[in-house]
Structure formats: structure tokens, C-alpha cells
Design a protein around this nucleic acid. Structure first.
Lengths: 156, 156
DNA sequence: TATTGTTATACTCTATAACTATA
DNA sequence: TATAGTTATAGAGTATAACAATA
């Protein structure tokens, strides 16, 4: 029992270098970004998760609920209610489109497109600030690495 | 009204490349990691946020609440109750240490050290899986970039 | 029977603000 | 008065499971 209160603290000191632990770095950077974005985007009346849905749909629409959930990494049950709220606020519309009657197609309304587009300059600023001091080649390499990490994590 | 249902969808198609938007990539990679870790670490009886506290303290202890909050990016009010829960579970101990009577020093108990150390192999596996296919130099560069991004975001 | 999406529940996280105690 | 930490409350996210409708 090497390890109590006052004396031997090596077991903790011994080994864990949090500052170079990838999950820590990833979470830390992501959290700082989310906090800043949450504060700014609230003034625009759009919560972070709502912006994620808007951004996903700005990038491609319409999308089914399951596609949208995968793209935004938002839980399906959460997304269902989130989309309901956004529907009430007139940002998106739900429609059952043709082929498979179970599927729901989500689409931006005119207002949703306008609000989403209005946030793009802010998004651009975040992109630029985050990558300040990066050369274009570095930025590309960094993003590619993030994608590789994402794919690698599939194997967990 | 350029932008409804069927016809003109350029405004959305026009411009937003989510797949290369840094905040998106960062959140996506972080979320996938968090989801996988949450599932696995629950079997060990330790929630993700609890692991973050353990890891921070394994890396350096004792720490004050505010240090711990900064290191884990966990909100202070959340952290306060989280630490209370962990105290009840015998993982950490709170102590008011000397100099400034307002400060609270958090420390791992013997059990906390044991549980934390027991999770290190799992942490190592995550690190390795996430960085599969990276050369050591790439991994180092990637982590340095993450740190730069984190620092850049301070300016937002 | 399997899949897509919704709803219910209970728990946790977050944000704000009010509070205690130290300084 | 300012700071470190706690607590209260309300709103939002998450996990599980149950459910409806469709396939």
C-alpha cells in the first residue's frame, strides 16, 4: 500500500502526463470552442446545438433524422425534440417524403436559411481565429489528421 | 423567396463546406471519443466526467477547485457537486489547506489512485487507437496543433 | 420481425444568480 | 469590496426503454 495521504505520492506523479494525452487535448480544445460559441451565438438567439443542425442542413439538405443525428453527433432522442423546437421557431420543416413512409426529411425553411447564412461570418471568424498562425498547408494537414482520428475511433 | 422546397436550393448548396469546418471536425472527433469512452468506462463504475477529474489529479495533486475546473473544462458549479459525489464514493478528499482559508484542496484517496491507475491501460488504448497510422512525429505535431488551437481560442 | 422516428423517465450538465466564508 | 467555493433553480442534454408506424 504505497499510496496514501502524506508521504508516498509517486503513484500519481509517476506516470500520467495529461498534457500530452490526446483525448484530453481534444476535449479541451473542443470545450473552449463550444463555450465561446455558446456565448456569442446566444445573442443571435440560436443555441449551439441548433447551430449544428442549421450548419449540417446548410451543407446538405434535406436530410433524414438519422443522417442528421450522425452528422451532428447529437443523440437521436435529443435531436427529435431539438428539431421539434426548431420547427416551432420556424427554422426547419419536417416532411415525410415519398419512398419510405417511416423516414422524415428535415429541411431548412426560408427563415432557417437566412438565420444560418447570417451566422456564417461568425463561423468564418472562429475558423480563422482557431487557425491563427497556421499556414494553409498546416491547416489542411491538421484537419486531415482530425478526420483520421475520427475514423480510427470507429474501431473502439 | 428563392429558397423553398423543391427548386432553388443554391443558397444552401452555395457555400458551406461543413466537412472542412474546423469546429465541426473538432466536435465530431471529440464526441466520438466521448461516446466510446462513456460506454466503456461505465463498466468500471466511473463516469466520463469523474474520469476527467481522476486524470487531472493523477497528473498533479492536490489541486484547488478552480484549478481543477480549468484543467477539466468542467463548470465550477458542476464540479462542486461532482466532487461531492466522488467524495461520497471515496475517490477524492476535500481539505482546507493552510494559507488561504477560502481555498479547498482536492486530493485523491488511496482508492481514487487505485481506480485511476486501473484506468490508465484503457486510456493508453484510446490514445493508441486514436493515433493509429500516425508516425510519432505526426502525433507530436498533431498534439502541438491542438494546443495552438486551444491557445488561439483564448482570443475569441 | 426489423427499422425509423417519437415519447417517457430519470439522471446529469449548464447557466445564472444568490449565498457563505474568507480576504 | 473582492474572491473561492457552494447551493438553488430552471433549462437542456443523455441513456434506456417503451412505443407507433412502416417495411
Amino acid at each position: 500500500m504505497a499510496v496514501t495521504g502524506d508521504c508516498a505520492r509517486e503513484p500519481a506523479a509517476e506516470m500520467f502526463d495529461l498534457a500530452n494525452f490526446l483525448p484530453y487535448l481534444l476535449n479541451r480544445a473542443g470545450a473552449r470552442l463550444a463555450i465561446a460559441w455558446t456565448q456569442e451565438s446566444r445573442q443571435l438567439g440560436v443555441a449551439l446545438q441548433e447551430w449544428r443542425v442549421l450548419a449540417a442542413l446548410l451543407s446538405r439538405q434535406p436530410q433524414r433524422m438519422s443522417e442528421l443525428a450522425a452528422m451532428t453527433t447529437i443523440d437521436r432522442t435529443t435531436l427529435s425534440r431539438l428539431v421539434s423546437r426548431m420547427e416551432e421557431n420556424g427554422l426547419v420543416s419536417r416532411g415525410r417524403s415519398g419512398e419510405d413512409g417511416r423516414e422524415v426529411q428535415i429541411e431548412l425553411t426560408e427563415k432557417g436559411v437566412k438565420v444560418g447564412n447570417g451566422m456564417l461570418p461568425l463561423a468564418g471568424r472562429y475558423e480563422n481565429t482557431a487557425l491563427e498562425g497556421f499556414t494553409p498547408a498546416e491547416a489542411r494537414a491538421f484537419k486531415d489528421m482530425l478526420k483520421r482520428v475520427f475514423d480510427n475511433l470507429d474501431r473502439l
